[in-house]
Amino acid sequence: ADPFVHPALFYRGDREFAVATAAFVREGLAAGEPVAVAVPHWHLGLIESELGADAGRISLIDMTRAGRNPGRIIPGVLRAFADSHPGRRVRIVGEPIWPARTADEYPACAQHEALINYSFAGAEVTILCPYDAEGLAPEVLVEAARTHPVLLDASGEQVSAAFAPDKVIIEHNVPLDEPAECRSLRFDRANLPAARTLAAGLAAELGFGPDRIDDIRLAVAELSANSLDHGGGSGLVRVWAEHGRLVCEVSDAGHIADPLAGRRP
């Protein structure tokens, strides 16, 4: 049997959340396992209260910050914790989806949940993923049954007959909505710096500070370098603002065949 264990927990209300997650944490502590809890900040206090003094023995992480980008959770939270305890079984509570996640964010969250199964296959790790069964849309809960091999709720534990993470990854790999308007530039090796400058310019107009503009410049540099190396040697950068965000898109003639690309530490 695969030593990796990945149950979804469907909870109803704060009390059920606190009792179930605290029991999971205590089971790990009793077995001598390192334990991390990465949940939205409004849930950290619930677990701390329920655990009492035991809360001081675990790592507490605000998922709204650490997991702001769902694509960062595997390398920056889950693998970061598991890899820091080599040779030991670790236990993590990871809640990446909450009701305020937007329609833009949700597909990346679902893909993240599916990819956990590939990233941790064969690993001595248990990751419990709580789902707010009252606050989340029914289709989100249906999809959780496709990304988790085991389902838990107040009535007990069952094997998920719908488990099919590969299909979740594929079904969310769809063309992205076109922006209403954007600034764009075709680039190749000759004018690569102009791609970074295009993004940095709009970022400055939108009020980003110097450090964040450096991040944006670096992200576009990484994407455009990928186009040169793996995407046919040229690409198209487009930048625009929508829904309170700056969007930087790089497209090219490449193909990302590895679903875990960008998630390996």
């Binding site: 390398p75 790999n173 769809v174 994407l223 690309a261 530490p265």
Partner: peptide
Amino acid sequence: GLLIVNLLSDLVRVHTREGATAVRAYFDVP
């Protein structure tokens, strides 16, 4: 590569198929 983009940005979305890939990095406006 993409790992750096994931670590720096607030959301990443990808559409990829044989011969065409688009990657979007989103940054929350302050």
